[in-house]
Design a protein around this nucleic acid. Structure first.
Length: 456
RNA sequence: GCCUCAAUAGCUCAGCUGGUCAGAGCACAUGACUGUUAAUCAUGGGGUCCUAGGUUCAAAUCCUAGUUGAGGCGCCA
């Protein structure tokens, strides 16, 4: 039976002098006259294992010496402890079988590649150190998200991916249709759903319905935005986590968000120490200290007004000047995260720049909204307390030209057992950027979709 | 969508104000090497200089358009 390299790594002393079979891909092969070394990675662990092969042990030594990078091989051999060497142990091969050859023009070489080049080779890039680490972290974080919520009795809700509502208020949508283009222009009466439908930009409205039945719920799934955003922080298809909590206000919401971010980071330190060490060394110097600092401190909480006051005092530094009561520009967000040296919640935003469903504050000028800003990834979380007062909600919908008829059910939630509730959306991909230091969202999504790019 | 920059060997790049400018390192192939670990050393093969026009005696180099990629801004998670 073959064994995963991860299992050997976790307890290599127990495998000393034992025979094992490992199967994986050749990362590097250094052949000499009578012996050679293969760095073998089977994907189960970040680390590769060194396989030693000798002419006197193998019939096919000359062939093995030519197995180049990317080849798939099966190795039968003995685990040998090598305490004085760079690696703690290696596998002394009795048999090396070629499972799948690799050609000499294999794109991934044992050397540095640019991120751009690897993006164009998205089918091979998981075989590199960086992407092996990034995508394992992505998997571990996804599981941690579920653990966090399940441990707290949250219900996992699969909100619909296709919706007919265009009132979600979160940007441009991809249209879903079974009609040809000419028919689309005639209208959607004969379309599949009998009305115009789109890929969802948020599961929040549906999550509210479930929160008002299960108390605490979360969604975790893909989200689609057809905005022609061309930045390192935007993708057309990304994954979002949207908890929604009943009988809760904005402070409860922020507490949940902070606990969740810390839980994920703590879990990552336990599950992925090798990966974090790698990121710390090669991707973002000081990453580990940054993350430890997040665990040890409370997130700053300031109002939008307080944030603006800080910016106004430093306004000479900005290309786009800060203005009282207006939205924050990217450079303002960067300044604030640098100023506080860590994650910061900005709360109580001017009503004019936020969505209709956010709860009006007593001043009638601001709403109970919060954004969590972090260095590098920008806006990691956006959330709010929801407007539970029907009259106020209807007024806001009217002011913001939201079609209330479509959202009849959303309004009914306020009439029957409605109560104060809150929620937020966390961009999984941005979270991964934040904890790995990888500064482009296209490099934390397996096969990223961005405007004009749907390859693979 | 707006602005800026880039494209030369499989990869990373050098190539100056047009004139031996088709180059290096890595990769690959062959050989050497009894412990390498991005091994080392020697030799060798490898190019539509992104595409299409234009200027010129002469264009990788200058001009125009396009394609692709990257960065900044806006939108947001």
């Amino acid at each position: 039976m073959d064994i995963e390299i991860k299992k050997i790594l976790l307890d290599f002393k127990a495998y000393a002098d034992k025979e094992v079979i490992v199967k994986g891909w050749v990362r590097n092969n250094r052949a000499q006259k009578e012996f050679g070394f293969i760095d073998l990675n089977d994907g189960t662990a970040f680390e590769s294992v060194q396989v030693v092969y000798e002419d006197k042990e193998l019939e096919n030594f000359k062939d093995v010496a030519k197995y180049n990078s990317g080849s798939a091989v099966s190795v039968k051999g003995r685990v040998v402890l090598t305490p004085k060497m760079k690696q703690a142990f290696e596998i002394k091969a009795d048999q090396v079988i070629l499972e799948g050859s690799s050609l000499e023009d294999y794109a991934i070489q044992p050397k540095r590649h640019t991120r751009e080049f690897l993006r164009e080779n998205a089918h091979f890039r998981p075989r590199t150190n960086l992407f092996n680490a990034v995508f394992r972290v992505r998997s571990v974080i996804s599981y941690a998200v579920h653990k966090f919520f399940q441990e707290r009795n949250f219900i996992y809700l699969h909100s619909p991916i296709i919706t007919a509502s265009d009132a979600e208020g979160a940007g441009e949508m991809f249209q879903v249709t079974t009609l040809g283009q000419t028919k689309v222009e005639e209208g959607h009466k004969n379309d599949f759903f009998g009305k115009k439908s789109n890929l969802s930009v948020s599961g929040q409205l549906q999550a509210e319905a479930f929160a008002l039945a299960f108390k605490n719920v979360y969604t975790f799934g893909p989200t689609f935005r057809a905005e022609k955003s061309n930045t390192p922080r935007h993708a057309s298809e990304f994954w979002m986590i949207e908890p929604e909590i009943a009988f809760a206000d904005l402070n409860d919401d922020m507490q949940l968000a902070e606990d969740m971010v810390k839980y994920i980071i703590k879990d990552l330190f336990e599950q992925c120490p090798s990966e974090l060490a790698f990121f710390n060394k090669f991707v973002e110097k000081g990453l580990i200290d940054k993350l430890k600092n997040v665990l040890d401190s409370s997130f700053k909480r300031i109002t939008h007004k307080e944030a603006t006051d800080i910016l106004l005092k430093n306004n000479d530094q900005f290309v786009i000047k800060a203005v009282e009561g207006e939205d924050l520009a990217t450079e303002h967000e960067k300044f604030l995260t640098k100023h506080f040296n860590g994650p910061v919640f900005v709360t109580d935003w001017p009503k004019g720049i936020k969505a209709f469903y956010m709860r009006m504050n007593d001043d009638l000028e601001t709403v109970a909204a919060m954004d969590l800003l972090v260095p590098g990834a920008g806006e990691l979380i956006g959330g709010s307390q929801r407007e539970e007062r029907l009259d106020m909600l209807e007024k806001r919908m009217e002011e913001m030209h939201v079609d209330g008829e479509e959202l009849w059910w959303y309004k009914e939630l306020r009439k029957y057992g409605g109560n104060k509730h809150a929620g937020y959306g966390l961009g999984l991909d941005r979270m991964i950027m934040y904890v790995t230091g990888v500064d482009n969202i296209r490099d934390v999504i397996p096969f990223p979709r961005t405007p004009k790019n749907c390859e693979f």
